[in-house]
């Protein structure tokens, strides 16, 4: 019974990782690729580590706190890394996809530039 649960968890994890990688290849721009990277890959790894934790707790009888710590750490850092990468990509000037509908951030930056010109 426990083996089935572990198998399902790590299979889901492997599948999600592969789907995230396919998303990284298929999405048309950097921001879309970040969607695949921050969501699918994160949940995939969390599911695998949860499976490993259950394996050691119920089959070997060891409470491995480090694995729970890893889950917490991945949870905390994945969105921050995605945020940093998208911010830097936008500041460097990586363009949105051609079919994008609107860009509020670009207008905001234009407004700031105009204000600075008026000051100087």
């Amino acid at each position: 019974m426990t083996e089935i649960v572990i198998s399902i968890l790590i299979l889901i994890g492997g599948g999600l990782s592969l789907l995230g990688a396919i998303g990284i290849i298929r999405f048309p721009d950097v921001y879309g690729r970040l969607h695949a990277a921050t969501k699918s890959a994160t949940l995939g790894v969390i599911s695998i580590i949860l499976g490993v934790f259950i394996f050691f707790y119920f089959i070997e009888g060891i409470f491995a706190g480090k694995l729970l710590l890893t889950i917490l750490f991945v949870f905390l850092t994945a969105p921050v890394a995605g945020f940093m990468i998208s911010k830097s990509a936008y500041n460097v000037g990586v363009k949105l996809w051609d079919k994008s509908l609107q860009d509020d951030l670009g207008e905001h930056i234009k407004q700031l530039d105009r204000k600075e010109k008026q000051k100087s």
Binding site: A36, L43, W97, L105
Partner: peptide
């Protein structure tokens, strides 16, 4: 979990029929 089902649907759809954009 909903987010992942969403992303999987878009990744596996044959035509990428999406309209991305940045909203304040």
């Amino acid at each position: 979990i909903l987010a992942n089902i969403d992303v999987i649907k878009i990744v596996l759809s044959p035509k990428m029929d999406i309209r991305p954009g940045i909203i304040a």
